[in-house]
């Protein structure tokens, strides 16, 4: 697989755009899954995963062929997801009053949407529930938990993808696990 991949990458670098199809085929599911778990939305996941491949194509000349291609590709996708999550967040003011409500501001609105009532959560099927719990994690824990337990990558690889020391990755995984544990046992 690696030999084929390297061959395709060289072809793309020489200007053969069609050779990139095989690269997409090889990684589309992994990348899409990563984006879906990070963003929790199919349309956004598709858009960001596609964008990740486009960026990889444009910047392929800067990829160091001695290193693992998947790590490089994951890194592009993870960064795009984190950017998207951050952009989505504060596009409203928390203190602003919600129109049509009497004195209710965004704080109460967030509390209401962020955490569903207990019985609603209990009625979810398992897969929805998993996605719901992942999406409640703060994004710095979400990325490590998704890379570790959904994409099943090694801690070393995660540290390369996120460009942070191994120790930091471990700390985040520990805290992520604790955060998830609390979420699951609070019900």
């Amino acid at each position: 697989m690696d030999a084929l991949l390297n061959k395709r990458i060289k072809q793309v670098l020489k200007g053969d755009q069609n050779a990139f199809t095989d690269v997409v085929t090889l990684y589309q599911h992994k990348l899409y899954q990563l984006c879906y778990r990070m963003l929790g939305n199919k349309q956004e996941a598709e858009d960001i995963a596609q964008e990740a491949f486009v960026r990889a194509y444009i910047n392929l000349h800067s990829y160091d062929q001695k290193r693992k291609f998947s790590t490089w590709l994951y890194r592009i996708a993870t960064n795009l997801c984190i950017d998207r999550i951050r952009k989505k967040k504060p596009d409203y003011y928390l203190d602003a009053e919600v129109p049509g409500t009497d004195g209710l501001d965004m704080y109460s609105h967030i509390a209401a949407t962020d955490q569903l009532p207990e019985d609603a959560v209990e009625q979810m099927d398992l897969q929805d529930r998993i996605q719901y719990e992942i999406s409640r994690l703060p994004d710095k824990y979400r990325s490590v938990i998704v890379l570790k337990y959904i994409e099943e990558l090694s801690l070393q690889e995660i540290s390369e993808i996120l460009d942070m020391p191994l120790g930091t990755v471990k700390t985040r995984i520990h805290r992520g696990r604790e955060a998830l544990r609390k979420q699951l046992n609070n019900l």
Partner: peptide, 23 residues
């Protein structure tokens, strides 16, 4: 619990869409 998450696959025309978006 997290590991029991189902594998998610990309939509069927994903490659095609990517190739269309390439410069």
């Amino acid at each position: 619990f997290v590991k029991s998450a189902a594998h998610i696959t990309a939509p069927p025309n994903f490659e095609e869409q990517v190739m269309k978006r390439l410069p």
